Each structure stands twice: as C-alpha cells, then as structure tokens.
Simulated scan of single mutants.
Amino acid sequence: MYIHQQFCISPQHTVEPVNLGELISSAAGKMVALEPLLEGVPPGMLRRMSKAVRMGIGAGLPLLKASTPDGIIIGTANGGMEDCIKFLNQIIDYEEGMLTPGNFVQSTPNAIAGQLSLITKNRNYNATHVHLGLAFENTLLDAKMFLNDHPGRVYLAGAVDEISTYNYNIDRLAGWYDPALTSEALFNTDHAATIAGEGAALFLLSGMPDGALARIEALETLHTTDPQYVENRFEQLLAIYPVTPNTLLLSGDNGDNRYRFFYDNLETLVPLTAVLRFKHMTGEYPTATSFATWLATYLLQKQDVPAVLLKKGTVPENIDRVIIYNQYHGKQHSFLVISKQ
C-alpha cells in the first residue's frame, strides 16, 4: 500500500511551509493544534462545525482538490465528543424541548467523514473507525483490504482527534494527564502522566507505486498487557523486515513512567538504530500514530531529521525505512513499517 499525498494539522508547523526545527511548547498541559484557514467551506457550515470536524475538513480538502477517491475512511476516538456533551447538556437544560440541531449533527464520530463526503459530493464508500488507540490503524487495514483486490483504486484515510474539555477533565482525574507538565520537561522528569494533544493527519492511498511518497510495508496491531508478548511480536516483525544502518525507530513514548518499559524493551532489540520521539511535539491522543505516519513519510522524503526529534543514536545519511511503535494506555499496541517506495 502506497502513500501518494498527505496533509497534517498538529500543534507544530506541519502545514506548508513545514518547520519542525522550531518546537512550539505546550500550555497548561495541552498541545493545541494550529488550524489553517479553510477555503471553499460556506461560512454558515463552518460556523456550526466542531474543532474535530474543522481539522478533518482542513486536512482532507487539500487532498481532494484533484482527486475523487473510491472511499473516505476516518479513524477517531474523541471526534465529536465536545458537541456530544453539549447536546446531552441541552437535553437537561431545555428539559428535552427545543434543542440545537447543529450540536446533534456534529456530535457523532462519523460527522468528519460525512462532511468531507457532503462538501465534495463523494457518494463512494464512507466509514469511520472508533477503536480508541487503534482507530487509525483500522482505517489503514480497511483501505488495505480494498487495495488488495483493487490496487488501482484510491482511498482517503486518516485520523482526527480533538481535546474535548469534558473528556480532558475526566482523563486528568483518572491520572492520564498532568496540567503542570510541559513539553520541554516531558522526557526529562519522572512522572506518571503525560500532556494532552490533538491533531489530524490524512493520506491518499493506493496500491500502485507510481509517484508515491512512501510505502506502508507492514501493519500489526496487538491487544495485550504482556511486555514479553509485545517483544516477541516485534522480533517476528524484524525477522521479516530487518533493520539496517539506514533504519530509524520512531517511538511513541509519551513520558509516562508507567509504560516507558514497553519502549525501552524494544529499543534494546535494535541497539544500533537511531531512535526518534515525537510526542513532545504533539502530546498524547488516541490516534497519534497518524502523526507518526505523516512524520515518517516526511523524513523519508526530506532525508533530514531535526535534532529535536532524536533520542539516541546517529541519524543515517540515507534513511530508507522507518519502524513506528506506539501503545495506548498499556493495552493497545501497533507496529508500522514505512519505507521509500
């Protein structure tokens, strides 16, 4: 499966002109996405959109200007959460009377894929995967199953998640986030929490290599709390896609000391490989692997790794493969192997 175009909205300068060397810091324990101006969206429609929908539209429309995909596939865990809670509050406030329809329409996770379809008048396959930390990976699996049978087709796939105020407060009380943490101190202090993030990363995928930016060679997902099982699966992956001096390991380490051992264990299996980290740039959110996929493709294209990403090792002059490992709450794990096409 090949990535032909990509677009990313994040807390960093990932919209052209891309600038990853200048790190934008967190504020109050959050990394808030920088939204670009949306062109071609009616103001009345834009006014009613939640932030998750705006980010999804903002990342999707640039990729759909010259392409009519055979399907739109979006992954999310918290997309629509803010409007969902607003709508539920209205039910109480207005005693089930005159409710605002906009909050209802925008409150479902499939609002992002649906709005992209409506704006571009695309009546092809339209799906949304809501699987917490594996929502993005399931969009890729969905697209891959279609492309295995019809490699000439094109699919828009990706993920969007927002920092919902209500959901953030719940996660903060549960101990996942700490508002006192900063992105600069994320990997320099020992703490049992991380910072919250959000973003959108969408990709045009096909089964044809012509003109592709990168190739998704492998994708694996695991549900386990056993670190030994994760190590075994990683070793099996390396047996098929062995690391070379030109391989990078892109780690989803979010600074939470409760789960750092997952990343440390895998790093010992590739001692000569340069290790990169990215969640001090994005914060933690369920579909952060979508940003990692965008980043891996960008690095393969540019062959230049900003120093702010490097954890350890020496970056090779010719990067030909990036292995991504990410886990969510110690239960959901994924591996992605992305290479030069």
Score class of each variant (00 low, 15 high):
residue 303 Q to C: 09
residue 189 T to P: 11
residue 215 R to V: 03
residue 283 G to A: 03
residue 254 N to V: 01
residue 315 V to P: 04
residue 300 L to Q: 05
residue 294 W to S: 02
residue 314 T to E: 14
residue 256 D to R: 00
residue 250 L to W: 03
residue 194 T to Y: 00
residue 249 L to T: 06
residue 185 A to P: 11
residue 212 A to F: 09
residue 295 L to M: 04
residue 263 Y to T: 00
residue 268 T to N: 07
residue 235 E to V: 11
residue 223 H to A: 10
residue 236 Q to G: 14
residue 204 L to Q: 13
residue 294 W to M: 02
residue 234 F to K: 01
residue 297 T to V: 08
residue 305 V to M: 05
residue 269 L to C: 03
residue 243 V to A: 11
residue 285 Y to R: 01
residue 316 P to E: 10
residue 205 L to W: 02
residue 289 T to K: 13
residue 209 P to G: 07
residue 203 F to V: 02
residue 270 V to N: 11
residue 296 A to S: 10
residue 286 P to W: 02
residue 291 F to S: 03
residue 305 V to C: 06
residue 195 I to D: 07
residue 286 P to E: 15
residue 304 D to A: 13
residue 239 A to N: 14
residue 281 M to Y: 12
residue 295 L to F: 06
residue 314 T to V: 13
residue 256 D to P: 01
residue 196 A to N: 10
residue 212 A to W: 03
residue 292 A to H: 06
residue 278 F to G: 00
residue 257 N to K: 01
residue 270 V to T: 12
residue 209 P to H: 09
residue 261 F to R: 15
residue 320 D to K: 00
residue 269 L to T: 05
residue 257 N to L: 10
residue 308 V to L: 14
residue 266 L to T: 01
residue 285 Y to H: 06
residue 230 V to H: 02
residue 259 Y to G: 07
residue 268 T to G: 05
residue 318 N to Q: 12
residue 235 E to W: 12
residue 240 I to N: 14
residue 198 E to N: 08
residue 269 L to M: 15
residue 246 N to W: 09
residue 294 W to P: 09
residue 193 A to M: 04
residue 261 F to G: 02
residue 276 L to Q: 04
residue 277 R to E: 14
residue 276 L to Y: 14
residue 268 T to V: 08
residue 253 D to C: 05
residue 292 A to K: 01
residue 262 F to L: 04
residue 222 L to Y: 07
residue 184 E to C: 04
